Amino acid sequence: MHLYCHDHPHTLTLTAEVVAASPGRVLLSETPFYPGGGGQLPDKGALRSNTGGDIGVTGFEVIDGQLWHLLADPVELSGVVEAAVNPNFRQMMREMHTATHILNALVFQSFDGALVTGVQMNDDGTARMDFDLPEADNDRLRALEAPINDVIAQNIRVNCTYIPFEEARAVPGLIRSRSVAPPPTEDGRVRIVDITGLDRQACGGTHLDNTGDTRAVKLLKIDNKGRHNRRVRLGLVGLGPLA
């Protein structure tokens, strides 16, 4: 499924027609919302209609390749609505997702191509990443905090492109997770997020335009999770537990 937010990442409010609806859910002709995936939470926001006022969007469901919006109230919308993404939440998710890519890149480079085994971003400005690192020294992982913030300070450009999925599978390091990969578009391509000169990997989430657009990052904790996994917890300075 090709998402509008991939092509128009800065459009957070969009007028759209109701294509189909039932109580508490609606399908729109177009939507600026990111539905979540790859460890990133879905956007928050609301739909605004002339008849129903503001109705919160609580989640999303993909049915037959179409993105349904789940609503906070059991209303049945029709006509034209305005879809509005919460800008503060989208910005936080963009910062967290780009920060996790920076951490991922540094771990990949420093630990012989170690793969991600899990990732989860939270609504308090923190995230966790699990890596397949059976012999890792946790102090070496903690030492990555300074290089992460150095990449942020360099204000490196972040670009997004599309390449054929089979080509992505053939390039070592483009698909960085051990267990999952972003789903291809209808024409068989996969989205590549490129932090210029540092990292290039398949990803379907929302990202910053430049690494300098995020707050500083702190590594909060490193846990051993089983024989192979190292869980790295990180947070944006000034948010949640780091406020």
Results as ranks from 00 to 15, higher is better:
E166H: 03
A20S: 13
L103D: 01
F89P: 05
R25K: 15
E167V: 09
M1T: 14
G45L: 12
E95G: 02
R140K: 06
S22I: 12
I152K: 00
A46K: 07
T100F: 03
L71C: 05
L141R: 00
Q154D: 03
V237R: 01
P42H: 10
V193N: 09
V190F: 08
E30H: 15
E145V: 03
P23S: 13
E76Q: 13
T214V: 06
E145I: 02
L14P: 10
A168G: 09
T13W: 04
P74K: 06
P32V: 15
N210Q: 09
D213C: 04
G65S: 12
P87R: 09
P172K: 07
D123K: 04
F111H: 04
G52L: 04
M1H: 14
G235L: 02
H228Y: 05
L70E: 08
Q201K: 10
N88R: 09
P184V: 08
N229P: 00
F131R: 00
G197R: 10
N50C: 01
K225P: 00
T126I: 05
P32F: 14
A83F: 04
D112N: 14
N159S: 15
H97S: 07
D73M: 07
C160W: 05
A21N: 11
V62Y: 07
D213N: 11
K44P: 05
N224Y: 00
G118I: 02
L141V: 02
N138M: 07
T15S: 11
L3W: 15
R25V: 14
D137V: 10
P23H: 13
G204T: 12
R90D: 07
T13I: 11
L28Q: 06
E186F: 13
T126G: 02
A153I: 00
V18C: 09
T58V: 14
V62K: 10
M93N: 09
A46E: 07
P35E: 14
D130L: 01
V57N: 03
N224M: 01
R189T: 15
Y162I: 13
D213Q: 14
S177P: 00
